[in-house]
């Protein structure tokens, strides 16, 4: 019961955050230079009928808060307005750009989990050894290397120089071709995230390895593999999972830049193009979408933490 109450409380907090963020997102329209009508007209001819239609659609003759209310209620119903470039519904514009971004995200996640967690565990267990020191040094460079700068280096070395990978575009929709095209972008995006997760895992493992129950398990003669997987990995999971929220926000900003560097037709590139074209409805839609995503993932992380570690449940009750 206490857990349900706790999650409900978090849910309410998140709704409050979403309302604040959505208000800020809505304000973008008023804050963009030029009149709201001119912004929404885009390249359409400004005939009185079109202007009247826009004013009616956005309730521009109403007070600001009423306009916001209308915008919010339609946003909740899945209507985020229309792109001023193509006239398409913003939701379908976003939906058509999402697959590439989701594929890139999945590929990156695989790299982060498959590379980051084992390396972090190995470094933490062999604390202070050569491997640990080299890994720690590498993570600092990895954290300092922004994905877009790294992307350029990858393009030069593996694309232009060695010719192993394509340097732009997402390729055809065939799975193999897609993976081939997304390899360099995923590496560029994953590097900083791997560095973060390695550090997080390493610190968690070092903490766990100093606990008495590890020493005790060893003394009892529990096998090395079982100590690592059953004791160390499970207790390391909590700090690593709670880092997922941080990883997500780093990844979101990173995706926008990496997709631009590699000309991938994903949501990140859509964001940059919409900003360049002053296509405010699309920018608003994407920003709102990102806000919902961040809030949802943070809620999931909280729920996962409760599931992984019974002690956090006790903390909630107390």
């Amino acid at each position: 019961m206490a857990i349900v109450l706790f999650l409900l409380k978090r849910l309410v907090g998140m709704v409050v955050i979403l309302i604040i963020v959505s208000f800020l997102v809505f304000s973008l329209l008023a804050l963009s230079p030029g009149s709201v009508v001119a912004t929404l007209l885009g390249t359409q001819p400004s005939t009185p009928q079109v202007v009247a239609a826009i004013k009616a659609q956005y309730h521009l003759n109403d007070p600001f808060l009423v306009q916001y209310w209308h915008w919010l209620t339609s946003a909740v119903h899945g209507d985020l307005g229309r792109s001023i470039q193509s006239g398409e519904a913003v939701t379908s514009v976003i939906a058509s750009h999402l697959p590439v971004t989701l594929e890139l995200a999945a590929y990156t996640l695989v790299l982060v989990v498959v590379v980051g967690i084992p390396v972090g565990m190995a470094a933490g267990i062999g604390r202070g050894r050569l491997f640990d020191r080299s890994v720690s040094g590498a993570t600092i460079v990895g954290m300092g290397a922004p994905g877009f700068a790294l992307g350029i280096l990858l393009i030069y070395v593996f694309g232009v120089g060695l010719g192993w990978f394509p340097v732009y575009g997402a390729g055809s929709s065939q799975a193999i071709d897609r993976v081939y095209h997304l390899t360099l972008p995923a590496v560029a995006l994953a590097t900083g995230l791997v560095a973060l997760i390695v550090r997080q895992t390493r610190a968690a493992v070092m903490d766990v390895m100093e606990q008495d129950y590890i020493t005790f398990a060893r003394t009892r003669g529990v096998g090395r593999a079982r100590v690592m997987l059953g004791y160390a990995l499970r207790n390391t999971a909590l700090p690593v999972v709670t880092a997922a929220g941080l990883l997500l926000i780093v990844a979101i900003s990173g995706t926008v830049l990496v997709e631009t560097v590699f000309s991938l037709p994903g949501a990140g590139q859509l964001m940059v193009q919409a900003i360049e074209a002053k296509n405010v409805p699309v920018v608003q839609g994407l920003a709102f979408f990102v806000a919902v995503l961040v809030v949802a993932v943070n809620l999931l992380v909280d729920a996962a933490a409760l599931m992984i570690d019974p002690r956090t449940r006790a903390g909630v009750r107390g």
Partner: peptide, 10 residues
């Protein structure tokens, strides 16, 4: 908990 760079871009 917000992607700062993305906010700056927007």
């Amino acid at each position: 908990a917000l992607p700062a760079l993305l906010i700056a871009i927007v």
